[in-house]
Design a binder for these strands. Structure first.
Lengths: 275, 275
DNA sequence: TGAATAGTGTCTGTGAGACAATATTAT
DNA sequence: ATAATATTGTCTCACAGACACTATTCA
């Protein structure tokens, strides 16, 4: 019997259910930037990070907020394709920055059965979003307090406030990987609070050594707007001259200007992209 | 009917098989450092990175080398626990640095059925490894050539040489995430060639801003040995004074020395750890 | 005109890169 | 003595941090 034939034979007899199988989902942390109107016509708008949550309409966790997500179609989809499908359904957006974050696999994270979830981070420019989606809502990150052992997030939409509160623990002293342990105050569905903590942490970590911020920017922006986005994500003030030096070769100055702001207008820039 | 009761009812009726389920595995890229004897008694040993591969004894890919891995026991294990179990079986080591790398989920990556694999990276000190494991072998990385669009690895054990050759493509111009497309020259089982490329790239990336290197070091080491490990992983020469400045507060100088080398002996250091 | 932001000039200190000089061992 | 590595000293240059100064708009 030839080797190939032998292998075919093997595959034909193979029992898929020799090991119990499990369900998979793709969940997405969709992050964007929102603008808060200022009281003073002269002052610039205040920016915040915001994330998209959807309200569960079914058990389990009926009525709780959670990340957009969906079951993987095992017969034909990759996880990323699954995530894109969900993204399209929730935001009607395609061709968006999407990156695999982590696979969450606690044995009892879903009361129905063993469900393993691969989480993604998506970054979008909110300006591209038109329609309001049923059961979905943007929550602004009003507060992000972090210490050596604590992680606290305050989320807020028009009518609700959600506090996420974690204990942080280093997984290994040689690495900077943290484990987030949610306190009982948290009340998002599943372990999505942890996905959020981990996703935002990843975002903060990558901002300094990549250009991912530009995925959240409109085509034209002022340098101050860009700086503000960096400041929110990094959670620290940056000095104007230093920021401009660093960012200079990543952007292109246009002849357009942002005017009518009650103060000196500023030039609009766009992302230069690679080479 | 109360809310809780309603939910219990729901869970009881829930059909796990409403969506087709899939199998999961944990695969591990185990990385270590090997020493190559020098011809000249005065000269220091040459170091290389090496990874552990096992030879498949069954279909599919019978006879091919692949990463150690195993099916997830869906009823009780997490993926990390599964990886630890495999690690114990392959190396008889516990309490080793282990970090989730990425989840690989190509629809046809396994000819038997849909199998999704979460890959881990493990770093070990080869000195701790005693027993030789059946069907397993360390492959040294003899060459790692990388350009903008290419990625090439040359693996070698006592008797075999394996070339891995990829095209590199940026997934997104704003991030530094690459997709690796294996050319037909590659012949490891499954998509494990890509796991290796991605894992080693992650390792290189994290070396500069973490202390993970120390997971591959023995308890006592000279600064030159440590420097060599950094040099191999980063693939560039470092200047002695600069390296010593950077590393100074991460290590503790002991009174022990490494002697008998045909040249000036050097102090042995150990990892300082956190705080 | 004044409030507010836009944008630039320049000094300083830190730290990496580079090279040189000195120290110490086994054969 | 010599080959080889270990270890340290120090100069320079780039660049981030800090602060000050000038420019420009709109009510």
């Amino acid at each position: 019997m030839s080797f190939e034939k032998e292998e075919l034979e093997f595959l034909k007899k193979y029992d898929k259910n020799a090991f119990e199988r499990c369900s998979m989902t793709a969940d997405i942390l969709i992050v964007s930037i929102s603008n808060e109107e200022s009281d003073n016509y002269r002052k610039n708008e205040k920016k915040r990070m915001s994330i998209l949550l959807v309200k569960r309409t079914d058990f389990p966790y009926k009525g709780k907020w959670c990340l957009p997500g969906g079951f993987l179609d095992v017969t034909k989809e990759t996880l990323e394709e699954c995530a894109k499908r969900v993204l399209k359904a929730e935001t009607n957006l395609q061709d968006i920055f999407l990156e695999q974050l982590y696979t969450f696999d606690g044995v009892n994270r879903d009361p129905r059965m063993r469900v393993i979830s691969t989480a993604f981070v998506a970054l979008v420019d909110k300006a591209l979003l038109k329609e309001k989606v049923e059961n979905a809502s943007w929550f602004d990150i009003m507060e992000w307090k972090e210490t050596k052992n604590k992680f606290e997030l305050l989320l807020q939409n028009n009518s609700e406030t959600i506090l996420l509160d974690f204990d942080k623990k280093l997984k290994n002293s040689t690495s900077s990987n943290y484990e987030y342990i949610s306190t009982n105050k948290n009340n998002l569905a599943f372990d999505h609070d942890i996905v959020i903590a981990q996703g935002l942490t990843r975002l903060r970590g990558k901002v300094s050594y990549t250009d991912i911020v530009f995925n959240m920017m409109p085509k034209y922006f002022t340098l101050k707007e860009l700086q503000q986005v960096y400041e929110i994500i990094l959670n620290k003030k940056l000095l104007d001259p230093a920021f401009r030096r660093i960012i200079a070769n990543k952007v292109i100055k246009t002849k357009k200007m942002k005017t009518g702001e009650g103060h000196r207008p500023s030039y609009l820039f766009q992302y230069r992209g690679n080479e």
